[in-house]
Every structure is written in C-alpha cells, then in structure tokens.
Write a protein that binds this DNA or RNA. Structure first.
Lengths: 247, 247
DNA sequence: AAACATCTTTCTTTCGAAAATCCTGCGTGA
DNA sequence: TCACGCAGGATTTTCGAAAGAAAGATGTTT
C-alpha cells in the first residue's frame, strides 16, 4: 500500500510528466473499471464481485465501491441493493437509444458551435480531422486485423474529431453528455470492430470530410443531417453484427 | 449501528409498508444529501466535511463517500482529489444551461410521446394535470407564504405532470436525463419560490393547460413551443431574482 | 418427491482506525 | 517587510476486519 500511495503523491507533484496521472485509488479504480467494461474485458451482465476486483486491481473495497457508484450513474454498471454490482447489459434497443440520444445532443451542440465558432474552433476541427485522416491512412493499407493498440489510437483520434466539432457549443452539459454517450457507444463499437478489417464497405473518412466541410461552410442543417446519418450508419452496422449472433 | 442495520433489514422484508424505504446506508446518504443540497440546506460552494456529515446523518464515512461520488456525476457535488467534496456552485450561466438542456431533452421526448402515446398516456396526463390543478387551487387563495411542506407537495405534483407528458417517449435515457435535469433546476426554483406568494404575475396553471391541450391534440410543434416558453419564463424569473442579490 | 425449515457458505456492506495528504501558523533568514 | 520552510493540526483517503444479508446446501416433514 505504501508504495502505491507514494506513487500517487509523486504523480501529483509532477504533473508535467504524465498528463493524466491518476491521483487517488478511487480514481484509478474508476478509470480501470470503465476501460475494462468498455473494452468488453468483462462480459455484459457479468457480476462484479468485489473480492475479484480487489485482487485484479490491487485495491481495497472502499475505492472500488466509490468507482462502481460513479459508473452506476453513467449506466455502465448496474447496482442491486445488498446484491452487489454487475456490468450493465447490452441490447439492440439500448444501442439505438444511445445512438439516438447522442445524435440529439451532438446535433444541437454542433448547431450551436456553428453559430458561435471562431477561428480557433475551425482550426481545431481541421487539425483533428487531419490527425484522424493520417491515422486512417496509416492503418488502412495494412490489410490485416488491427491490434488493440492500433484500434484504441484510432478511436481516440475519432473521438477528438467529433469533440472538436462541438467544442464551441457553449454548454458544459452538452459536452459532458456527449462524452458520456460516447463512452456508452464504445461498448458497442469496439467489440463490433475488433478483428475486423480497417476498411469495410463504408468510407468513413469521406463521411467525416463531408461533415467537416458542411460545418466549416456553416451549413447547420446539412452538417446536422450528415452527422446524424453518420451515427445511424454505424448503428445499423452494429445491429447487423449483433442480430445473427447471440449478442 | 446494529439498530440501523436491523431497521434496514426490516424495511427490505416489508416493502409494502413504506413505499420508498431506503435499504442501505449508502442509499440513505444519497437521498438525504441530495435533498439537502436541492433544498438549499447547504449553501452552494459550501465544503461538505465528512466528519460534519457523519454526525449530521449518523453514518460512517464509506456510505457517505459513495453517495457523494454519485452526486458528483449528477453535478450536485464537486469533488477535488484529496481535498474533499463541496456543494456545486450555482450561477445564472449554469441555470440557463440546465434550462436549455432540459428544454432540448423534454421537447424531443414530448414529440416522441405525442407520436407514440396511447390512451393510458393521455389518461396519465389528464390525471396528473388535475391533481396539480387541485393542489394549486387549494394553495392559491391562502394569501400567505407557503410552508416547506406545501411547497414540496406542489413541486411533486408539478414534476409528475411534466413527467406524464414525456412518459411514452420510448427512451430510458431521455426520461432519466429529464429527471436529473429536473433535480438540478430545483436548486434554482426552490430558493426562488421560498417565501413567495403562490400566485405571482404569472398564470402557471394556464400555461400547463395550454401545454396539455396542445399535447392531447397531438400538435407537436405547438406543444414543444409552449413547453419551451414555459421553462424559459421560469428561468427569466429566476434570473431576475438572482441578479439584484448576491447569488 | 415436494415443500419447508435450518444451517453453511459466500458475498456485500459498514465501521473505525490508521495512513497519507493538505492547510495554517509560526519562526527564520534575507 | 517579505519569502521560505517546517512543524502541528485538520481532513481526506484507504485499509482490513467485523457485521449483516443473500444464495446455496442439507436435512426433515408431509
């Protein structure tokens, strides 16, 4: 224990070294749990026994329970009184609910960003698109399944692009909701993408470029429609993947 | 401690007696904390010292921390690593952000309910409106400030009406978000209403009737516009109350 | 064999103390 | 006078054990 606490202390004094160092054990538990649930390390519906988590993460009950309580309100974890926690189940219905809610939130946020966005906002979008594009071009011609690391790097760039679009919406809540809903959609997208070729029948890069172009042209309605279609297509592909299998 | 645990156990075996009995200490902590924050018992920005809460609620650290972690993700509590928790501050900007986000969510949910609503849904709206109306008529002619109990009874009816409107939207997330945003708005509405006459210059009952009529007539656009105006007016009154004072 | 009660085991939940950290006030030196 | 560092106290955070409840196993009765 002492070693861990000291490591945390050092990290907090040395913020430049590791940009997102986790300070407390509860924060560590939160991030690792969330990451493992999103990545599908834990099956949907699986009970999250505290003793198991304690051994896996090397933490004590208290920080684990604090993290699980947070994840409960974020819909990643289910809590039953006196019966512990479990991974929130997934279903096609839930997948569509996340997708549609996310579309609602992000379309509104995009519209507001288009209304308020300044030069920095535009530059941020162009930069994020370019970084995403580079990553796609690097990975696409490999002609093989992507590794977890490659997939996760791509996911980060993807999220940063969508985040840049709505950055100037002026609402903390919309941005926050967008982040949360993004995490929820990852639960569906990552398993569907794992072990797949980087390029399917779909030209995602082109969809992104279209969204960016309409956004920079300040064409709200068109940008919103393209964004909504972008998410809808992803959902349809995921649904097609989920339907034949057990899910 | 033993007495408390037994009480919880009894409640869980006897669910019919008390409809919303809190089972675990953590759940109790969550509800009492949330209620106290919303009611303004704790000032916005006030630090929430654990020793203070422990004495106030007669609970131990663990359940308190679990509750505070949940409230953190619900934006009622601020958490700073190794520096504890505090009541989330309020501001006119935040108030508008809550109001506009809530409007976005509930207008969409109302539209979908109007599309999908059945007879039970309509009946639920009429019933909720009537109960709200009865309460208003009972309280309005009193010609004095409302007590905390009267105000809270009114608030429950009010929320039930708005909840009935969107009940058939078909999205767990929209309903859930609506609930959370309602709690957040209460932080602004309750202090503004406390010590006020039940009837101001504004005919809230009439606004509600208009919303109901448009909804039952399945006029989505009109109902949405009325609902948005309803929330906007409330926000404007709260802003007017907050501006002259310190806030 | 089924229904039921009781015991055991497993797990969650809570507690209180210990460890780690932050904050404040005081003294020291420039 | 002001910056700096260093105790001492206050507070948060974590831990491990103990208490309590649920699930499962065993035996008993009808």
């Amino acid at each position: 224990m002492r070693a861990k606490r000291n490591a945390a202390a050092m990290a907090s004094h040395d913020e430049t070294a590791s940009p997102e160092a986790s300070f407390t054990a509860a924060e560590t538990a939160y991030r690792r749990l969330r990451s493992d649930i999103v990545a599908g390390v834990f099956e949907p519906g699986q009970p999250l026994r505290l003793e198991f988590l304690r051994q896996r993460y090397g933490l004590s009950f208290s920080p684990l329970r604090e993290a699980l309580n947070r994840l409960q309100t974020e819909r990643l974890v289910l809590a039953a009184a006196l019966r512990g926690f479990s991974v929130a189940p997934v279903s096609i219905e839930e997948m569509w609910d996340v997708t549609e809610t996310r579309t609602l939130i992000e379309c509104e946020a995009l519209k507001r960003s288009i209304d308020r966005g300044d030069d920095d906002w535009e530059a941020g979008i162009v930069a994020a698109f370019h970084a995403l594009d580079l990553q796609v071009r690097r990975l696409a011609p490999l002609g093989r399944e992507l590794s977890v690391d490659e997939l996760s790097a791509l996911e980060i760039r993807h999220q940063e692009f969508h985040s840049a679009l709505i950055a100037k919406c002026g609402s903390r809540r919309l941005i926050n909701l967008s982040d949360q809903l993004h995490v929820e959609t990852q639960r569906y997208r990552l398993p569907a993408l794992a072990g797949k070729m980087p390029t399917g029948p779909r030209d995602v890069a082109f969809e992104h470029r279209q969204i960016m172009d309409a956004t920079l042209a300040r064409e709200s309605d068109k940008a919103e429609a393209l964004l909504a279609a972008h998410y809808r297509r992803t959902a349809e592909l995921i649904e097609a993947q989920m339907s034949p299998r057990s899910g």
